[in-house]
Write a protein that binds this DNA or RNA. Structure first.
Length: 436
RNA sequence: GUGGCUGUAGCUCAGUCGGUUAGAGCACCUGGUUGUGGUCCAGGGGGUCGGGGGUUCGAAUCCCCUCAGCCACCCCA
C-alpha cells in the first residue's frame, strides 16, 4: 500500500522547509517592528464558531472533525479571525488597548486545488483591536506594505486596492438599490470585470437598476482612484455628500501621512466575501492581475461583540504564502539558498586523527558553530573535501599527523581555497571571527 | 461540485503502425588506496510504464472505468 499526501497539501522537505522558515522569519520580523505581538490558537474550533461567523464560501469548505464516542463536531480552522475574536472576547477586559496581535497559522479549506490555491496553507495575520479611527486601518496597510517592500516588491509590481463597504452601500442606496438587494448588488459589483456587458446589464436590471443608475454602477465598479491624488479631486468623483465620506477622507490622509500612497489605489469593485467586514476593505494584487489576491483584509467592528465580547472596533489583514511565493517567483525575488549555512566540516586526514574528530566537533558546537563531519571511513582528503563542498561548508578543518604533534589544525576556506594552520586553541575564535 | 489537459525511475523527459530482459540526462550510492574540493572515468541501486478491467498469441502503446496532478469556473490567502 502506497500513500501520498492528501489532495492540495504539501510536504516540506529540507529545501522547502528552509524557504518556509525564511518567509515566516520575514513575517515575524516585520510584525514585531510594527508593534505587533505574536499569538496562536488551536488548529480546530467548534463548528458553530465558523457556521455563525464566517461567510458561506468558507463554511462550505470546512473540514469537519468528529471524535469516536462524541456527538460534538469540530472544524479545522479555515481562517484565524474567529479564533482571534474569541480570544479577545474572553479576556477583553484584562487586555491593554489597543491590542496589536499577529499570528502565522496553517489553515485548511476543502477547495479545489489550482494555481495559487491549496487545501492547506500558511497565512500571516495582523490585527488591531480597540481603535475605531482609520489610523488603525492605515497602519495595517502600512505594515503589509512594509512586508512587501522587505521582500523586494515595489509599487510598480503590486497594488493595494482599497474600498469601503459603507461608502459603497451609500452609493448603491442613492442609486436606488433597496436594502434587500444590497448583498446581490455587492456580488454584482465584485464580479463586474468578469461578466460580459449584457449579462451585467441584465442582472442589474433585475435588481432595479437601469439607465443612469446602471451607468453610475458601472462607473463605481470600474473606476480606479490613485491614492496619490489629492483628496479634493477624488471626492469630486464620488457621488456622495462630503459627510458620507469622512471615514475615507481620514484614511486617505493617514495613508499619505505614512508615505505609502504610491502603493495604493481606491477600487470600489473590491467587496470581499467574508460576512463580518464592516468598513474599509482591501486586497493586494499583482499589478497586471497575473495572480490571485496576495492578501486581503478590512474592518470588522462587530465581530468581537458577536462572539460574546464587549463592543470592540477591529481591523485586520491576512496574507497567504501560496500566491505570495508565486509572485515572488514571477519577479525573480525568491532567495536562492536559505538552508542553514555550515560553518565547519571537520576532516581527519590520518587514521590517528580520526578519534579526535568528535571531540573537536563537540567543542565547535558548544561555541554555537554549525559543525559536521564525515561518517565515512576514508582519510582521502580529496573525497572528504568534496563532501564538505557538497554541504556548502564555509570552511574545512583538516586534522592530520601534524595536529597530533604540533597541535595545530589546517583551516581551508572553501570559497577562496586559502589554507592556513591555526593553533587548536584558537580554532573556535578564528571560525567565529570569519563568520561575519 | 462542473469542464479541459496530463500521468513512463526521486526530477526532466524519450520510447506508441501493439512484438524479445523499458531507455537517456540529472540526482543518489560505490570505486578510481596513502591525502586537497563541487570536474572527469568506471560501476551500481531504483520503474507492477498511476491503478483496475477489457481486446489480443502478445499491451507503456488500443478501449472502458477509476485515482491523482495541473489549469479554468465559483470564490478567495
Amino acid at each position: 500500500m502506497k500513500f501520498q499526501a492528501p489532495k492540495g497539501t504539501r510536504d516540506f522537505y529540507p529545501a522547502e522547509m528552509a524557504w518556509r522558515r525564511w518567509l515566516e522569519g520575514k513575517w515575524r520580523a516585520v510584525s514585531i517592528r510594527n508593534g505587533f505581538e505574536e499569538v496562536e490558537g488551536p488548529i480546530f474550533e467548534t463548528l458553530e464558531l465558523y457556521t455563525a461567523k464566517s461567510g458561506d464560501e468558507i463554511v462550505n469548505q470546512l473540514f469537519q472533525v468528529t471524535r469516536e464516542g462524541s456527538d460534538k463536531i469540530h472544524a479545522i480552522r479555515p481562517e484565524f479571525t474567529p479564533t482571534l475574536a474569541r480570544m479577545v472576547a474572553e479576556k477583553a477586559n484584562a487586555l491593554p488597548k489597543p491590542i496589536k496581535w499577529f499570528s502565522i497559522p496553517n489553515l485548511c479549506r476543502g477547495e479545489q486545488p489550482q494555481r495559487g490555491r491549496l487545501r492547506e496553507f500558511l497565512q500571516w495575520n495582523i490585527d488591531m483591536m480597540g481603535i475605531a479611527e482609520p489610523i488603525a486601518d492605515a497602519e495595517c496597510i502600512f505594515t503589509t506594505v512594509d512586508l512587501l517592500s522587505e521582500l523586494g516588491l515595489a509599487p510598480n509590481m503590486v497594488k493595494v486596492k482599497i474600498s469601503h463597504r459603507d461608502v459603497v452601500r451609500r452609493i448603491l442606496s442613492r442609486l436606488g438599490v433597496a436594502d434587500d438587494h444590497m448583498v446581490a448588488t455587492f456580488e454584482l459589483l465584485d464580479r463586474r470585470e468578469k461578466l460580459p456587458d449584457d449579462v451585467f446589464r441584465e442582472r442589474a436590471n433585475a435588481i432595479g437598476l437601469d439607465g443612469t443608475a446602471l451607468e453610475r454602477l458601472d462607473q463605481v465598479a470600474l473606476v480606479r482612484y490613485p491614492t496619490s491624488e489629492p483628496w479634493d479631486q477624488i471626492k469630486a468623483r464620488i457621488p456622495l455628500p462630503e459627510s458620507d465620506l469622512e471615514d475615507l477622507a481620514d484614511l486617505h490622509d493617514k495613508l499619505r501621512a505614512f508615505g505609502i500612497d504610491d502603493w495604493c489605489e481606491y477600487d470600489l469593485g473590491i467587496v470581499r466575501g467574508l460576512a463580518y467586514y464592516t468598513g474599509t476593505v482591501f486586497e493586494i494584487h499583482e499589478i497586471t492581475g497575473a495572480e490571485r489576491a496576495m492578501a486581503g483584509g478590512g474592518r470588522y467592528d462587530q465581530l468581537i461583540e458577536s462572539v460574546g465580547g464587549p463592543p470592540t472596533p477591529a481591523v485586520g489583514m491576512g496574507m497567504g504564502d501560496v500566491v505570495l511565493s508565486l509572485v515572488l517567483q514571477d519577479k525573480g525575488l525568491l532567495p536562492h539558498d536559505v538552508m542553514p549555512q555550515l560553518d565547519a566540516f571537520v576532516i581527519a586526514a590520518a587514521e590517528a586523527a580520526q578519534s579526535r574528530v568528535p571531540d573537536l566537533v563537540a567543542t565547535l558546537r558548544a561555541a554555537g558553530l554549525h559543525a559536521r563531519f564525515s561518517y565515512r571511513s576514508t582519510t582521502n582528503v580529496g573525497k572528504l573535501l568534496k563532501e564538505a563542498a557538497q554541504h556548502h561548508a564555509r570552511a574545512a578543518v583538516i586534522l592530520d599527523d601534524n595536529t597530533l604533534s604540533a597541535d595545530t589544525v589546517a583551516v581551508k576556506d572553501l570559497a577562496t581555497g586559502e589554507q592556513t594552520d591555526v593553533p587548536s586553541a584558537e580554532l573556535t575564535s578564528a571560525l567565529l571571527h570569519s563568520r561575519r
